[in-house]
Amino acid sequence: MKLSTRSRAAVLGTALASTLALAACGAANESDASSGGSGESAAQLSGDLVGAGASSQQAAMEAWQAGFSGEHPDVQFSYDPVGSGGGREQFVAGSTDFAGSDAALDDEELTAAQERCGGDVFELPNYVSPIAVVYNLEGVDDLNLAPATIAGIFAGQITTWNDPAIAADNPDATLPDTAITPVHRGDDSGTTTNFTDYLSQAAGDVWTSEPDGEWPLPGGEAANGTSGVVSAVGAGNGTIGYADASQAGDLGVVEVGVGGDFVAPSAEAAAAVVENSPNVEGRGQYDFAIEVDRTTESADEYPIVLVSYHIGCIRYDDQATADNVEAFLSYVISEDGQQAAADNAGSAPISDELRQEGQSAVDAITAG
């Protein structure tokens, strides 16, 4: 895929904390002032706002929904964490007003979405979070894994925890001969797309499958949704999986090999790798899809990161839907909305540059 050479200049920093109610109010006022919509006051917004998609966004969505609904109580807001693939399918079919997705639309989906919208589509990278490689192994509290070792485990080539490759990454650990049970998503998942993209970029000699939202190999254990993977890993011994870091809970979390170091997932390290990744070329005016560079050798960057999008139409059929989508996304991309997500989900607040790009799309939302 051809990439742009533009690099983001703004630093993804932490915004000042504020209350959800004040955040929603500020976002709504900004929306009313800059919108191409009706200019109705916040109190007049009503009707339905329906979204579906990435389960990784669920904790952030709870914060966003609380802030938005606190300011717009007459809007009936719902979000179904059905998974990224299901969210994109429902949006393209016209069943929802927007989708949450841990992967940008592919070319075929983009064409279908443009047909559904009757024109431009927006893809806004509003949720940035590390994907943790999580495990449950009795007696092992700390674990380092190089990219090739992770790829070998999930490809079914490394099958016991005392394998020489794992031992080489953990020379001071006492590793049991317990069998490894890899757990992967059973549904079409943007988290899987990002994870397999990492394996492909960082360990292409071992992981030869193309990045895909559907798990490409036989074997292992399948579980639906982020919560399903976390539950399956937690229920076994010798299990390993991948999930949004905010939902890792009490599971062990792998430190991933980057250059000559091992790096733990963090919002700051996830933000840093996104900061140095380019946009995808050839997209529409309001499409800000990112091609994450997962080959970094900087210990300040964590390469297994998901960039989760909100996807919708620039033009909706009715004004109420356009106003509701505009007001919601204005809150989501605001400093307060991003801080609410960071506080509830451990995500990395987007940069000022991403906010400015997103605002250009939000301001363009209209009806007709």
Rank of each mutant, 00 (worst) to 15 (best):
P216V: 14
A28D: 14
G36E: 10
G346M: 12
Q44H: 12
T149L: 10
E40T: 13
A66D: 13
Q339T: 12
E62T: 13
Q356C: 00
A93P: 00
I153K: 02
G190Y: 08
D323V: 05
H72I: 07
V256K: 11
A203H: 02
V253L: 07
C313N: 06
D107A: 14
E210A: 15
L306A: 13
R185E: 04
S7T: 10
K2M: 04
F91M: 10
T226C: 02
A243F: 01
N194A: 14
A17F: 04
V50T: 15
G220A: 01
D336I: 06
E357P: 00
E301W: 08
D343K: 05
T159G: 07
E62A: 15
L354C: 07
A267T: 09
T111H: 05
G204L: 07
Q44S: 15
T192Y: 03
A235H: 00
Y331D: 06
N279R: 14
A248I: 03
A235Q: 05
V280W: 01
P303R: 06
G220L: 01
A361T: 03
G47M: 06
G204T: 05
V230K: 01
G368E: 13
D317I: 08
A54N: 15
C117H: 04
G190K: 07
D97M: 08
G83Q: 02
T226N: 09
A320N: 11
E62M: 05
L175M: 13
A148C: 05
D212T: 15
A203K: 01
E275H: 12
Y302P: 00
V230P: 00
T178M: 03
V206Q: 06
Y316L: 05
A269G: 06
G241V: 07
H72R: 12
F154S: 12
P349N: 09
A132F: 03
A151S: 11
A33P: 00
N29Y: 04
D244Q: 11
N136M: 04
L143A: 12
G257R: 10
I180Y: 12
V140P: 07
T366Y: 03
A320E: 15
A112G: 05
F122M: 10
T14M: 01
D197A: 15
A342K: 10
L199A: 01
W161P: 08
A364E: 06
V128Y: 00
Q359D: 09
A151E: 11
S55K: 00
